[in-house]
Design a protein around this nucleic acid. Structure first.
Length: 330
DNA sequence: TACAATGATTCATA
DNA sequence: TATGAATCATTGTA
């Protein structure tokens, strides 16, 4: 009852011809060599799809053989173009899903820091110089620090070289892996439609993964630099006691203002000048002195008496010695 | 070498 | 923001 022009459905029948393409014997002779009735084509396609679906369940050799057979199959170009069409249609919906994302702010910060420290970018020792200048400006740096400076520089250059070696390794691995995947996709594009855009996306995914590894490397490098810097800049590590004369000046002020040992900003500046130290060092000294005195007044009694006597002696001599102005007096 | 002294830092608070 | 309190890291000394 079927019209001779209406081919049977894909699931209809299923009786294979003796020279059926699903035997997957390469049919390299082409369609002319193995003529098939027109109605058979839909059946062919259904079976080809079935074969493709099950190809992953087969062993490598089997799959390879089947792949080769499929590549040579006379229906392949037609099927391929259909797949391309379907893919193009579905591809449209995901076209807008993935666009170039903005640069990771954390990575930007890491890059900037590595650049500022002289780890990334051209070698010039800028980071070390910056550290030194920072140390000197903070007031805690002794002038004869060239030894420590070179120590810092050598350690920084160690970090730098490790960083660059690792970075190079990662970049090489990334390139190798990308090439491998691209080759794989190109190879696959012979049997399934793989658009250049798809390859691009895959490459982008790989780069993202590798860049996250790179971020970790940058993070640990930053940590190493921070530790190095903190060790280098930590003034506690190169503490020098003040001169005897400076301590004397500070103690004189402290004990002569015992009821209110809080020098004004001007007094601090004056004391700093007299002692050859910075104002913040004067502040530190008074901070420490106050707390330590308060904690153990008994221990400081002798010292207090000594300076009280000194002050009294100075006052009796009547000389208008250039002492710092009494802030509150008592 | 242990330990006290001391200058500096950090953190909480008023 | 100055100060107190705790703590760190080094120096000085017995």
């Amino acid at each position: 009852s079927a019209h001779p022009c209406v081919p049977p459905g894909p699931s209809g029948g299923g009786r294979r011809s003796p020279h059926h393409p699903w035997d997957l014997e390469p049919c390299c002779a082409g369609p002319l060599a193995c003529p098939e009735p027109v109605g058979q084509n839909k059946l062919d396609i259904g079976d080809i799809l079935q074969q493709i679906m099950t190809i992953t369940d087969q062993s490598l050799d089997e799959a390879q053989a089947k792949k080769h057979a499929l590549n040579c199959h006379r229906m392949k170009p037609a099927l391929f173009s259909v797949l391309c069409e379907i893919k193009e249609k579905t591809g449209l919906s995901m076209r807008n899903t993935q666009e170039e994302e903005p640069q990771d702010p954390q990575l930007v910060r890491l890059d900037n820091m590595l650049l500022a420290e002289g780890v990334a970018g051209p070698e010039k020792g800028g980071g070390a110089a910056a550290a030194v200048s920072a140390a000197t400006s903070s007031g805690g740096m002794s002038p004869d620090s060239s030894l420590e400076h070179s120590d810092y520089k050598s350690k920084l250059s160690q970090i730098r070289s490790i960083y660059h070696t690792e970075l190079e390794k990662y970049e090489q691995a990334c390139t190798e892996f990308t090439t491998h995947v691209m080759n794989l996709l190109r190879e696959q594009s012979r049997t399934r439609p793989v658009t250049p855009r798809e390859i691009e996306r895959m490459v982008a995914i790989i780069h993202r993964k590798f860049s996250s590894i790179q971020t970790q490397l940058k993070q640990s490098t930053c940590e190493a630099v921070m530790i190095l810097r903190s060790r280098f800049l930590d003034a506690r590590r190169k503490r020098r006691n003040f001169s005897k004369q400076a301590t004397e000046v500070l103690n004189e002020y402290f004990y002569s203002h015992l009821s209110n040992p809080y020098p004004s900003e001007e007094a601090k500046e004056e004391l700093a000048k007299q002692c050859g130290i910075t104002v913040s060092q004067v502040s530190n000294w008074f901070g420490n002195k106050r707390i330590r005195y308060k904690k153990n007044i008994g221990k400081f009694q002798e010292e207090a008496n000594l300076y009280a006597m000194k002050t009294a002696l100075g006052a009796r001599q009547g000389d208008d010695s250039p002492h710092t102005p009494n802030s509150t007096g008592n």
